[in-house]
């Protein structure tokens, strides 16, 4: 039977832990609010820009800009977005599982795969494994700004143009709601057109296969427009993905810490009950001893 003192210590320890998880939950909730506002306000712009670019990609000839051009090679890069900190439930585990699955699949198809990771957890994970890491961006989520996306965008676009890889996918946690995150794998490069996506606005559909550039007016000229629009698009998408992940991380942490606080509460109740029972048993036993002793003296 555990001593009363060790039980008291145990209760105190769990109470401390509960205080910490509670505080972390509050912090995560506050951060979540901010991250959520950011992603919700960034989404319309990113989505509209994506629609415009896809529209454009449909009409512009693929050779007109390097980011539209499909490469012949079989080098695939996966951009893995994880968090910098742990204690956020299955957030990183989910991402990394999907990522390794993806990499294995593509490697089996004879593709040459490489990884670029953002977020410390992902960097650590891949460093301990055999996949090639091309680039790392650890520790950006504390003060996430558009500069980071610019940075990433520049690096990635340059390597894409140099032929370091021929296609780029990204895997990240999408912020669906506070209770839900969804792991998403998206193809980022080459930039693809709307193509089979149903329900595009009507009239130009009827033209069928004649995808003439002439149907679209460009100002200034097509080349110059693509030159500014496409890198911009890529950066905005990268930024959106980072924001999604940041919001999802805080949501996941909040949920995880909420659960932890509740579990700690349950544990405290259980141990306290056991402590009281043990204490009573000890008192009863002592009384019995005294009574027994007094009886014997008679």
């Amino acid at each position: 039977m555990p001593s009363l003192q060790s039980l008291r210590r145990k209760i105190a320890s769990v109470k401390n832990t509960q205080k910490i998880t509670k505080a972390m939950k509050m912090v995560a909730a506050a951060k979540l609010k901010r991250a959520q506002d950011r992603i919700l306000s960034a989404r319309p712009y990113a989505h509209q820009l994506r629609d415009v670019v896809r529209h454009l990609a449909e009409r512009a000839s693929p050779v007109s800009h390097p980011l539209l051009r499909k490469h012949e090679g079989h080098k695939t890069e996966l951009l893995v977005i994880t968090s910098d900190r742990g204690l956020c439930g299955a957030f990183n585990a989910n991402i990394l599982r999907q990522a390794t699955e993806f990499l294995r699949e593509h490697a089996e198809q004879g593709e040459q795969v490489s990884v670029s990771a953002s977020g410390r957890k992902g960097c650590d994970f891949f460093r301990r494994r055999t996949w090639t890491i091309r680039q790392e961006w650890p520790g950006i989520f504390d003060r996430l700004s558009f500069e980071h996306a610019l940075d990433m965008g520049q690096d990635i676009i340059q390597h894409y143009n140099d032929g370091t890889f021929d296609q780029l996918y990204v895997v990240y946690n999408e912020f669906k709601s506070v209770m839900q995150q969804r792991v998403v794998i998206e193809k980022l490069l080459p930039i693809e057109s709307l193509d089979e996506e149903a329900g595009g606005p009507g009239p130009e559909r009827s033209e069928g296969t004649t995808k003439t550039v002439g149907a679209y007016l460009f100002e200034p000229d097509e080349h110059e427009l693509l030159e500014t629009l496409l890198p911009k698009h890529f950066q905005v998408q990268a930024f959106r993905v980072l924001l999604e992940s940041a919001a999802a991380e805080q949501a996941a942490r909040m949920t995880a810490m909420d659960g932890a606080t509740r579990n700690a509460g349950e544990l405290i109740q259980k141990v306290t009950l056991f402590y009281n029972k043990t204490r009573q048993a000890a008192i009863t036993k002592e009384l019995m001893d005294i009574v027994g002793g007094a009886e014997a003296l008679k």
């Binding site: 009409r59 130009e204 149907a215 679209y216 007016l217 460009f218 100002e219 200034p220 427009l225």
Partner: peptide, 16 residues
């Protein structure tokens, strides 16, 4: 390259 006006049914047009 100058201001432009758009009415419904305008042709496809993309500009900075």
């Amino acid at each position: 390259e100058g201001d432009f006006g758009v009415l419904p049914g305008h042709c496809h047009f993309l500009t900075t």
